[in-house]
Every structure is written in C-alpha cells, then in structure tokens.
C-alpha cells in the first residue's frame, strides 16, 4: 500500500492526464450516428499511429553502430507510418463519398 501511495503522489499529474483523457475519449464519441461508425473507427485507428513517434524516438536515441536497434526501429517507423498515413487517407476516401452526394 505504501508503494502505491508513493506512486500516486509521484505521478499525480500523469494520473490526472490519464483520467481526463479517458473521460474526454468517452465523451467525444458517445453520441455518434451509426452512419459514422466505420469512418470513426478508421479515423481513431489512424490516430493510434501515434506509436510512430515512439519509433522515431527509438531510432534517434540509438547509437549509429547499433544496427539491431536501428533495423527494428526502422521497421517500427515504417509500420507506424503505414498505420497513420493509410488510416487518414482511407478515412478521407470514405468521407469524400458522403460529401459528394451532399452537393445535390
């Protein structure tokens, strides 16, 4: 229990951030028409491509001779970037179709 209290005190700000972000995530999404479920899922999926930031950090923090880290990091950046770019592009394609018929 002492360890827990210490952890809580130390990371209080982070825990606040965590809790409020969760509430924000729930709140932002809770009133969505069914029509938008697929684009929304796809858009949220693109956002989970933020993991690419971690990939970049990994590669930048590695030493230039550490090819294992560099190689794996490169792979990570590629995959994270596919997730992000592809996700946003495909969401845009879906939403473009909704737009087209709106003009009528």
């Amino acid at each position: 229990m002492d360890g827990f209290i210490q952890f809580f005190e130390e990371y209080q700000l982070l825990i606040y951030l965590l809790v409020f972000t969760i509430i924000l995530g729930f709140e932002v999404i809770s009133k969505v028409p069914t029509v938008l479920h697929t684009p929304l899922m796809s858009g949220a999926n693109a956002i989970s491509g933020v993991v690419v930031i971690g990939g970049i950090l990994l590669v930048r923090q590695a030493e230039s001779g550490d090819f294992l880290s560099l190689g794996l990091g490169l792979f990570g950046i590629i995959m994270g970037m596919i997730n992000a770019t592809g996700g946003f592009a495909v969401t845009d394609r879906m939403l473009e179709m909704f737009k087209k018929k709106k003009k009528k």
Binding site: I22, L24, G25, H37, A44, I47, S48
Partner: peptide, 9 residues
C-alpha cells in the same frame, strides 16, 4: 483517446 473511444465504439 483511441483506447477510450474504441471501447465506447
């Protein structure tokens, strides 16, 4: 954000 919204969805 994705974790929370994905769960709600």
């Amino acid at each position: 954000l994705v974790g929370a919204s994905g769960t709600i969805l």
